[in-house]
Design a protein around this nucleic acid. Structure first.
Length: 479
DNA sequence: AAAAAAT
C-alpha cells in the first residue's frame, strides 16, 4: 500500500476580521457601495440586502495531507499569483484578501508536485475562486492549446464559471470557452479548441474529445465542480470516470494532469468513493457537525391544502421577497414548475420559470434577466439547486421538499443543503421557507431537522401576514 | 415517483 504517512490537522478557530472578500459573489459590489457590517444588536441604515456579516464558518476544516508542507496565506500576494491575476482580483473583482478555503487550497494546488485535491467548503465561501485561480495559474498563456478543463453538472453552472474565469483572466491573455449543448448550427461549425481553458458539461466535453475538437494532450489540470454529484452513482459517475481515465491513460502520452474535486457536500458514500478515485490526494473536509445551515434562517409552514400552499406563495412570500431582494422557488418536477408558473402568471404575478425541458436559449435569457435583477422571483427544478450564485437572493422556498428518487419520503439532505445555499451568499442574510402539506412532508422535515441536528422554526399560521413578517424579522431581513 | 445531460 502506497499510503504515505498522513497527518490530520484541525485548523483552529480564529477571530475573523469583520469584512471578508475574495468570493466570486462580490464582483458587482465595490467597497464604496457595501456597508461596513451588521453587528448583532446594531441597526444598520443601509439596505439589508447588501449587508455583509462574518464569513461563513468554514473554520474547522480537517486537512489530510502527505509530507509536503503547505503555507496558509493571508494575502493574495503570498499565494504567488501572477501580477496579471492580482490586477484582476483587486481591480476588476474588488477582492481584498483570500477567504479561508482559498488560503488553504491555493498553495496545495500551486505547489509542485501538483498533487490532486479533494476540497469541501460551505456554500458561498468562495470555492469557484479557488479552482479558477488554480486553473489560470497553471496555464501557460503562450501555449495555444487547452491546458485546463472544468466539468460541471449543468449548462448554467458552466456558463457562470466561465463568466467568473473570464473576468479574472482579463489581464492574463488567457482565453476560455464553454463545452455545453448548443444549437445544431453552432455545434457542427465547432473548430478545434485553441483556448487554454475549457469549462463544460460531461456529454458535450466527451463528444468534443471524441471528435478531435478538444485535445487533452496538454491538459495540466482537471476540475470537477460539484464533485460529489459528478462522481455519484445517480449523477455523472460514468462520464466523469471516463474523462479522468482518458486524460490519465499512459497510452495517450498526455502531460501529467492534476485533478481537483470541489463541493460543499460529500456524503459518506461518495466521500469514500472519491477518496479512492484520487487516492494520493490532499483532502480538506468540513467536519460533519460543522456543516450546518447557520447562514440562513429556516422555517416550516404547515398548509392545510394545496390552495393554501399556493396562497402562501402569492400573498405572503412574493410580496415580502420583492421587498428584501430576490426569491427562488424550488419544485419537484418540470411539470410542477410549469404548473406553478402558469397559475401565478394567470393571476398577474410576475415571475419566471426555468428547467431542463425549456429551450436552451430561453434558459440563458431567464438566468440573465434574473442575474440582472430584472426579475425577482424564479421558479426552478433542481437545475439551479447547486452552485447558482446570485448575491441578491435571500429567500428560498421549498414548495416541494427535496426527496431521494425511488424512495418513499427519504429526504435528499445534500440537495436540501444546496438549495438553502442559494440564499445567504458569502455571509449575507437569508431565509428558507419549507411548505408542508402532507404527513409525509412533516416526516421529511423531521428527518432533515434530525440530520442537521437543528430545530427549524415554525411559522404559526400560514394565513397570517404578521407571522411572515415576524419570520423575516427574525431572519434579520426586515427591521 | 426526478433532474440533468450529447442522442
Amino acid at each position: 500500500m502506497a499510503d504515505t504517512a498522513t497527518n490530520t490537522a484541525t485548523i483552529e478557530k480564529v477571530p475573523e476580521p469583520k469584512r471578508s472578500w475574495g468570493d466570486e459573489a462580490e464582483e458587482e459590489e465595490s467597497s464604496t457601495t457595501v456597508p461596513e457590517l451588521s453587528i448583532e444588536g446594531l441597526k444598520i441604515e443601509e439596505e439589508p440586502i447588501t449587508t455583509l456579516v462574518d464569513e461563513p464558518e468554514d473554520s474547522n476544516i480537517e486537512a489530510v495531507t502527505g509530507d509536503t508542507l503547505y503555507s496558509t496565506a493571508t494575502t493574495f500576494e503570498e499565494l504567488n499569483l501572477s501580477k496579471e491575476l492580482l490586477l484582476g482580483l483587486y481591480v476588476d473583482m474588488g477582492f481584498k484578501r483570500p477567504s479561508k478555503i482559498q488560503a488553504k487550497t491555493l498553495p496545495m494546488i500551486l505547489t509542485p508536485p501538483y498533487k490532486d485535491l479533494i476540497a469541501q467548503a460551505h456554500n458561498g465561501s468562495g470555492k469557484t475562486t479557488c479552482f479558477v485561480l488554480g486553473m489560470l495559474s497553471r496555464v501557460d498563456p503562450n501555449v495555444k492549446a487547452p491546458q485546463a478543463l472544468c466539468i460541471c453538472p449543468t449548462r448554467e453552472l458552466a456558463i457562470q464559471n466561465l463568466e467568473v474565469l473570464t473576468k479574472m483572466a482579463k489581464h492574463t491573455g488567457i482565453t476560455a470557452t464553454c463545452a455545453i449543448p448548443m444549437d445544431r448550427d453552432a455545434s457542427s461549425a465547432r473548430q478545434v479548441v485553441t483556448d487554454q481553458v475549457v469549462i463544460g458539461t460531461p456529454g458535450t466535453t466527451k463528444g468534443w474529445v471524441a471528435k478531435g475538437k478538444l485535445s487533452i494532450r496538454e491538459m495540466k489540470i482537471l476540475v470537477f465542480d460539484e464533485a460529489d454529484h459528478m462522481l455519484a452513482e445517480d449523477g455523472f459517475k460514468d462520464d466523469s470516470l471516463r474523462i479522468i481515465k482518458n486524460i490519465r491513460d499512459p497510452k495517450n502520452k498526455n502531460t501529467h494532469c492534476q485533478v481537483l474535486l470541489f463541493s460543499a457536500t460529500f456524503n459518506d458514500t461518495v466521500k469514500n468513493f472519491v477518496s479512492r478515485v484520487v487516492s494520493d490526494s490532499n483532502q480538506l473536509f468540513v467536519k460533519k457537525e460543522e456543516l450546518t445551515l447557520e447562514a440562513v434562517k429556516q422555517f416550516k409552514v404547515r398548509c392545510p391544502d394545496e390552495i393554501s400552499k399556493l396562497s402562501v406563495v402569492k400573498d405572503k412570500i412574493i410580496g415580502l421577497g420583492e421587498k428584501v431582494g430576490q426569491t427562488i422557488i424550488f419544485v419537484h418536477s418540470r411539470k410542477s414548475a410549469d404548473m406553478l408558473h402558469s397559475t401565478l402568471a394567470k393571476e398577474g404575478w410576475v415571475c419566471t420559470n426555468i428547467h431542463g425541458a425549456i429551450d436552451k436559449e430561453f434558459r440563458d435569457k431567464i438566468v440573465k434577466e434574473f442575474k440582472e435583477g430584472l426579475t425577482k422571483v424564479l421558479i426552478t427544478t433542481d437545475l439551479l439547486s447547486r452552485g447558482f450564485d446570485q448575491s441578491q437572493v435571500n429567500l428560498v422556498v421549498n414548495y416541494d421538499l427535496p426527496v431521494k428518487h425511488g424512495s418513499y419520503g427519504e429526504p435528499d439532505y445534500e440537495v436540501y443543503m444546496h438549495r438553502c445555499g442559494r440564499a445567504g451568499r458569502f455571509g449575507r442574510k437569508g431565509a428558507v421557507f419549507n411548505l408542508l402539506l402532507t404527513e409525509r412532508d412533516s416526516n421529511v422535515m423531521d428527518k432533515i431537522q434530525n440530520h442537521f441536528s437543528q430545530q427549524v422554526a415554525e411559522v404559526p399560521n400560514w394565513d397570517s401576514d404578521e407571522d411572515f413578517e415576524a419570520a423575516l424579522k427574525s431572519a434579520r431581513l426586515l427591521d
